[in-house]
């Protein structure tokens, strides 16, 4: 059992939780993820590690309420326990030798992008962060990004927060204005990462994208998380989650991520109906 030490709503759809998991905290690095189950009948879902505190033995996760399981997770409060919590899984973000990096986050992906930006910043790397949201109500971690970045650009689809436009517009602007990055790190919706990678390919900037496909075990046992990178099949849970963005087959990844859409929608509705009564 893994106790919830802290819970905070970052916006109406995104929640932060700090979980007591000393073994995971001891080993966690930015870029890695955990898999959890809320209860003994629950589904296994992967979430990226947003932060960790080795001395306290805690791991922070940030999640968007998108389906039945995240809905259930969000119903839990400080003092409640998660049934299962395993990690850290996957490879840590490679940061060696970097001098100047653009970190590009979209939506809840910013929760994953932030620890990467923070670590790079602490290492003395010059970090430019570009984060995008649909509108101002969905903005998360703005202050945190500001303190970890020497340049920060906030974008929103409707212009209600920061500038109106896409993260790719901001990136193009920065590059055109003469900024030179040795790497772009992008984390967010598949479609956003696809376009970021297309753009950086144009400018020849090495880019890594963090993938979060369907997973079960997270140890290389099921192959459910597979994707095609440079024509080869890779397992996101052990070979990733970060891959060379210029080699990822995003179209395939998008098709695979939709395999259970109908089931998830139904499960989500069922869960919402279930909770309607108890509210």
């Amino acid at each position: 059992m893994f106790e919830i030490l802290e819970k905070k709503n970052l916006n109406p759809f995104v929640t932060l939780m700090k979980i007591k998991a000393p073994r995971v905290a001891k080993k966690a690095e930015p870029g890695q993820f955990i898999i959890l189950r809320t209860d003994s009948e629950g589904e296994r879902i992967p979430l990226t590690i947003a932060d960790y505190d080795r001395s306290e033995g805690s791991v922070t996760i940030i999640f968007q309420i998108v389906g039945a399981t995240t809905e259930k997770l969000n119903r839990l409060n400080k003092g409640d326990c998660l049934h299962d919590f395993v990690g850290p899984l996957g490879k840590a973000t490679e940061t060696e030798g970097l001098k100047k990096v653009a970190v590009i986050g979209g939506g809840v992906g910013c929760a994953i992008a932030f620890p990467v930006a923070k670590k790079l910043h602490e290492m003395g790397v010059e970090v430019h962060s570009i984060v995008g949201f649909r509108n101002k109500d969905l903005v998360i971690l703005e202050d945190e990004f500001r303190t970890a970045s020497s340049r920060f650009m906030l974008m929103s689809d409707d212009g209600s927060a920061g500038e109106k436009g896409l993260v790719t517009d901001a990136l193009r602007k920065l590059v055109e204005s003469g900024e030179k990055y040795d790497r772009v790190i992008t984390i967010g919706p598949l479609i956003m990462m696809k376009f970021v990678c297309q753009l950086t390919k144009e400018y020849n900037i090495p880019t890594v994208a963090s993938m979060n496909p369907v997973m079960i075990d997270g140890t290389g046992m099921c192959g459910g998380c597979r994707l095609t990178v440079g024509g080869k099949t890779k397992f996101a849970c052990i070979d990733g989650p970060e891959f060379d963005g210029h080699l990822i087959d995003f179209d395939e990844a998008m098709a695979r991520s939709s395999s259970y859409k109908a089931f998830e929608r139904k499960a989500h509705e069922d869960t919402c109906n279930l909770f309607k009564g108890v509210k």
Binding site: G224, A255, R256
Partner: peptide, 26 residues
């Protein structure tokens, strides 16, 4: 890598470990 293609490990894990054959499975 098309949708609907599984390794047996994934297929059986969903069924045996995660009890996906039960109607109330998540």
């Amino acid at each position: 890598n098309l949708n609907g293609v599984y390794s047996t490990n994934e297929f059986l894990t969903r069924i045996n470990l995660m009890k996906a054959y039960k109607s109330d499975s998540t």
